[in-house]
Amino acid sequence: MALKLGPWSGRKYFLDKMTLRDLVGAYFTHHAIMAYLVLAIGCLVYLVLNPSNYWGPALAAVLVLPIYPLAWYLLHRFVLHGRWLYRMPQTAALWKRIHFDHHQDPNDLGVLFGALYTTLPTILIVTIPLGWAIAGPSGAVAAVASGLLTTCFYEFCHCIQHLPFQPRWNWLKRMKKLHLAHHFHNEQGNYGITNFTFDRLLGTYYSHPRETPRSSTVFNLGYTGEEASRYPWVAELSDENQQPGAMRPARNR
């Protein structure tokens, strides 16, 4: 019998039933967050043991910060909210795990965190070419570390946005309001998680629900009953609480 260790063993976490203290404990013991932090520490150790001109790696790490929100925006809008992944049997399970399940139940912490087999390649693809172009191997390592830590920040803010907790800082309150509108009013806007600059630049930003019509696909991302009849693979993988529908609240627990 496999040995089960840690707070994530054999249980589920739902953000609407958690306190901030509960979240901190669950966040830092999730395997994805631990992986990001361990890899980031490894990158920093490499930089310390291989000293070079620190300005290049530092510049690479800093430049990741404005570029990462663009990468996330494009992936979120055109891949996660695109409809081509669920239309192929080879990628239907992937789409279900990385986004459909989260919109079906935004409070389920287990599917809020990105899957490592998708997030790590994305981080490496975005950061390594940039860092290498600026400062070679050290720049690439510094950029990867910056991407990993940025992802940790994104994930924690994402958790806060679904937690029944009122942030003290106005910027975090605003961020939470915009993201919840994406989940519960119209999913075809406010694609940013911590940064909505590219929503503003590319015409998908709305600051208040009354500014844009309510979406009938906010929970199923367009995977309606009609779509499921044509592309049944996600429906076949879903339980009775996740069957496609026009619009309904998150599943009961």
Rank of each mutant, 00 (worst) to 15 (best):
L178P: 07
M175N: 10
A115P: 04
R200L: 08
Y117F: 12
G139R: 10
F196E: 06
V144H: 03
G192A: 09
F153T: 11
Y191M: 11
I98M: 04
L172Y: 02
H103M: 10
M175I: 01
D101P: 02
Q188N: 14
W171N: 01
L130Q: 03
L172K: 08
C159K: 05
F165E: 07
Q166V: 13
Y117Q: 13
L124S: 09
T194A: 11
K177L: 06
Q104C: 12
A115W: 04
W132N: 13
R174Y: 01
K173N: 12
D101F: 03
R97G: 00
I134F: 08
W132V: 12
M175L: 15
Y117G: 07
H185E: 06
H183Q: 13
F153G: 11
V126F: 08
T127Y: 01
T150C: 05
L94S: 05
F184S: 14
T119R: 02
N107P: 03
L163M: 06
Y154N: 11
H158M: 04
G189S: 04
P106C: 10
A115R: 12
K173E: 13
H103T: 07
E187L: 12
I160S: 00
G110N: 15
A142H: 01
C159S: 14
L124E: 00
A133K: 03
D101M: 07
L148T: 11
P106R: 08
D101C: 05
R97H: 08
D108P: 05
H162Y: 09
S138R: 14
L149I: 12
I193G: 04
S146F: 04
L180A: 11
G136F: 03
W171Q: 10
R168G: 13
A93F: 02
G114L: 09
L94F: 08
D199W: 01
H185N: 11
D108E: 13
H99E: 08
R200K: 15
